[in-house]
Amino acid sequence: MRSAHRRARAGRRWVHVRNVDLWQRSLGFAALGFLTLVPLLIVVSAADTRGGQGFAQWLADGLGVSPAARAEIERLFALPGQAWRTTTAFGLALLAVFGLSFGTMLQSGYERVWDLPPARWWARWRHVLWLGALVGVLFLSAIAPPWRESPARGFVTVAIGTLFFWWSQRLLLGGRVMWTALLPGAVATMLGLLGLRIFSRLVFSPLIASSAVTYGPFGTVLVIQTWLVGIGVVVFGGALLGRLLHDELLHRAPPVEPGQ
């Protein structure tokens, strides 16, 4: 009887994992992220008084690449400082629209993870608040010294990242899931991002150098796009793992707060 119960629980877990459609959501995350996050971070980092060199630094530091691959990334984004001077109001508005769409996509993934219905249309203000917080986090990350120059930054980044993903889930889900239930997903997401950074150092770093020789700048873009797919897997997969840990390991039902 107990064995049959475990098999039934395992079957429910598998159905839930399959229903999240992790791979397709990660591809959408990468596509919209490249359309939104890359231009947004270029514009935001261009406001840095040091000349707007923060984007290439942030991207190379996030990938954890070697000096050769870092040089290719800096060559690809050689003139980011011009973005702030040449960006129009229409361009900024378009980036904001795409940014809000990115928040909608992330919210949809979190709702699928927690088996929640879509939020009402008037809750879209949460996307505006989330986008503003994302811009602030990206700006601070872009202008901060690299990890190799400030080891203490790694601990601060992990702490801020965990808090950001913890708060993001709570905000985008409209408070329908308790804070304690969301913490495992935030921790799993940050641990996954650290693991992805190590993987990037071992795999993506030589790929950037070789692809730049074979395909030119387009090869570097392909590797960056693949890295964004990996981030999508980590973001949604971390939230999904947090849900499974909370429900299965702690033997608790999904803590959905009624009436919200």
Rank of each mutant, 00 (worst) to 15 (best):
residue 82 Q to P: 15
residue 121 W to E: 15
residue 193 L to Q: 07
residue 255 P to R: 14
residue 251 H to D: 14
residue 170 R to N: 14
residue 82 Q to A: 10
residue 223 V to T: 01
residue 33 G to A: 07
residue 217 P to E: 05
residue 68 A to W: 06
residue 11 G to H: 11
residue 148 R to T: 11
residue 242 G to T: 07
residue 110 Y to N: 03
residue 222 L to D: 03
residue 120 R to I: 06
residue 158 V to K: 02
residue 126 R to D: 01
residue 80 P to G: 10
residue 162 T to P: 00
residue 131 L to E: 13
residue 44 V to Q: 04
residue 35 L to M: 12
residue 162 T to I: 03
residue 29 F to T: 04
residue 150 S to K: 03
residue 110 Y to D: 00
residue 201 R to H: 10
residue 145 P to D: 15
residue 207 L to E: 15
residue 151 P to M: 05
residue 206 P to C: 04
residue 73 I to G: 06
residue 88 T to Y: 13
residue 32 L to N: 06
residue 168 S to N: 02
residue 157 T to K: 06
residue 90 F to G: 01
residue 47 A to S: 14
residue 75 R to Q: 12
residue 127 H to P: 01
residue 231 I to V: 12
residue 206 P to A: 05
residue 174 G to D: 11
residue 178 M to E: 15
residue 159 A to F: 04
residue 94 L to I: 09
residue 112 R to P: 12
residue 216 G to D: 04
residue 181 A to S: 03
residue 144 A to K: 02
residue 149 E to P: 02
residue 13 R to Q: 08
residue 84 W to S: 10
residue 36 T to H: 10
residue 150 S to H: 12
residue 191 L to H: 00
residue 56 A to C: 05
residue 15 V to P: 10
residue 15 V to C: 06
residue 105 M to H: 09
residue 132 G to L: 14
residue 5 H to Q: 15
residue 205 S to E: 10
residue 41 L to H: 15
residue 198 I to C: 02
residue 77 F to T: 07
residue 135 V to N: 04
residue 187 V to R: 00
residue 63 L to N: 02
residue 129 L to V: 13
residue 98 F to E: 06
residue 83 A to Y: 11
residue 206 P to V: 09
residue 247 D to W: 08
residue 206 P to Q: 05
residue 207 L to K: 01
residue 55 F to E: 00
residue 184 P to R: 09
residue 24 Q to E: 12
residue 20 V to N: 10
residue 3 S to Y: 15
residue 186 A to T: 04
residue 75 R to K: 15
residue 65 V to I: 03
residue 45 S to P: 13
residue 15 V to K: 13
residue 241 L to C: 05
residue 5 H to K: 12
residue 204 F to Y: 06
residue 171 L to E: 00
residue 101 S to W: 05
residue 75 R to M: 12
residue 61 D to V: 09
residue 154 G to W: 13
residue 174 G to W: 11
residue 4 A to S: 14
residue 89 A to P: 01
residue 92 L to W: 13
residue 165 F to T: 02
residue 59 L to D: 01
residue 210 S to G: 13
residue 77 F to M: 07
residue 260 Q to Y: 11
residue 158 V to N: 01
residue 32 L to T: 07
residue 80 P to Q: 07
residue 169 Q to D: 00
residue 200 S to K: 11
residue 72 E to G: 05
residue 80 P to M: 07
residue 130 W to R: 06
residue 157 T to A: 11
residue 130 W to G: 01
